[in-house]
Design a protein around this nucleic acid. Sequence first.
DNA 1: CGTCCACAGGAATGACGGGCGG
DNA 2: CCGCCCGTCATTCCTGTGGACG
Length: 407
Amino acid sequence: MPEANDIVFETLAKISSSIFVNREVLRPDYVPEVLPHREEQIRRLTEHLAPLLRGERPSNIFIYGLTGTGKTAVTKYVLRRVSEYGRQRGIMHFVFSYTNCRHDDTTYRVLANIVESLGGRVPFTGLSTAEVFRRFKRVLNTSGKILVAVLDEIDFLIKRAGDELLYRLTRINDELVKGKVSVIGITNDVKIMDRLDPRVRSSLGEVEIVFPPYDALQLTDILKERAVKAFRPGVLEEGVIEYCASIAAKEHGDARRALDLLRVAGEIAERSGDRKVTVEHVRLAREEIERDMVVDVIRTLPYHGKIVLLVIALAGGRFNSTGELYTSYRDLTMKLGVEPVTQRRVSDIISELDMLGVVTAKLVNRGRYGKTRQVTLTVDPNTIIKAFEDDPRIGWFARKVGQSGRD
DNA sequence: CGTCCACAGGAATGACGGGCGG
DNA sequence: CCGCCCGTCATTCCTGTGGACG
C-alpha cells in the first residue's frame, strides 16, 4: 500500500509545511502550462504538426538542445494541446506515442511501447522483433490513424541498437495502405546524426528545431513562474531566485539544475525549521546536490572506474592528456596492489565519467604532439575523496589521503 | 607541404555472473 | 538442476586524424 501512505505523507507535509504549497511543480518531469522563452519553438512545432488536423502526415522532426533547455516539456505540452484541440473538434485520426529511449533502448522495447500506445498488446519478452513489427503494422493499418512517434533521448537507442528501427519507421509509409507514421526525434547529442544512414538522416532531419540554452535572465523568469505555485507567499528571500539562476546559467543554462537548486534549498530551509529560504540555503543546496550526485556516480561505477575517478581527484581535478592520466592511474594501482587495466579500457572509462557528468573530456589536437583528451572534474576534488572514504575496497586509501590533506 | 605524434574510438572476442524457461 | 541467453567489464588489434614541426 505505498499509495495510501503517500497520500497521508503528502497531505501532512502540505499542511505542516511552512515553506511549500506544492513542491511538485519544481520537479523535473512536471510540465507547466506556461513555458517562458520557448514561444518560438512552441509555434514552430505546432505549425509542423498542424497537417494532422487535415488528415495529412506531418514531416519528421528532429529536436536538438542541451539538457534542461525544455525540449521534452515543450514537446509534451504541444502534443497535449494539439490532442485537446483535435478532441474538441472531433478530429480523431491521429495518435501520439512517447518513448524515452534512455529506458527503452532496444528496437523491441521501443516498438512494444509504440504498439501499446496504439492499443495493441505485446508481451515484454518472447516475440521476435520481426513479429512485433508485423503487429505494429497491423494495428496501425486497422486503426487507419496517423501515428506521431516521439523518441526522446534517441541517441541512446541509436548507440545501443543502431538505426534500423528509424530506417523502417521512416520508410513504412510506402508499405502501409492506410495508417501513416511521423517521427519526432529528441536529443542533446549533435553528432548523433553522423551515425545514421544518409537516407534516415535526410528523412529524420526534414525539420529541425533547436533549443538554445537559457541565459540567467530567462532562467529567472522560469523560476519566478514556478515559485509562485511552489512556495508560500513571501518565504523566498531577496536574491534567492537570481542566485539559483546564475549558478545554473554558468552550467550551460540548464533549467533542470536551476529548479533542483530552488527545490532543495526549500527543503533544507524546511528541515532546519527556518521560515524563509535564503541565499545561504541555496549554497548548501548546491553542495548537497553535488554530494548526492558524486555518491550516486561512485556507487554505479566499476572498480577501475572508481580508481580512475580517484586519480583525477587526487591530481587536483585535471589532466592535460590521457597519457599522463594513465601513468598516474598505474601508479595508484601499484599502491593499491591491483592489476591495472589497459589504456584502451581507461579511455572508455573516461567517456563513461564524461557521460555521467562528473568530468568533462575535451578533445584537443596538439599537432606534432598528437591528439588527446583534456579531462577536468566538474566537482570539487575533496567531495570525491570524501565520498570514497567509506568505499569497502579503496576507502582506507582515501581516508589516508584525506587525513594528510586536512593537516 | 608532407610526416608523424599520441592518442581516439570502432570491431571482434572472451571471461564471468545473473536470470529465466523447461 | 541444466543449458541458454544476455549484459558488463575487459583485452587485442586496428584504422583514423588535426596540425606543429622539420
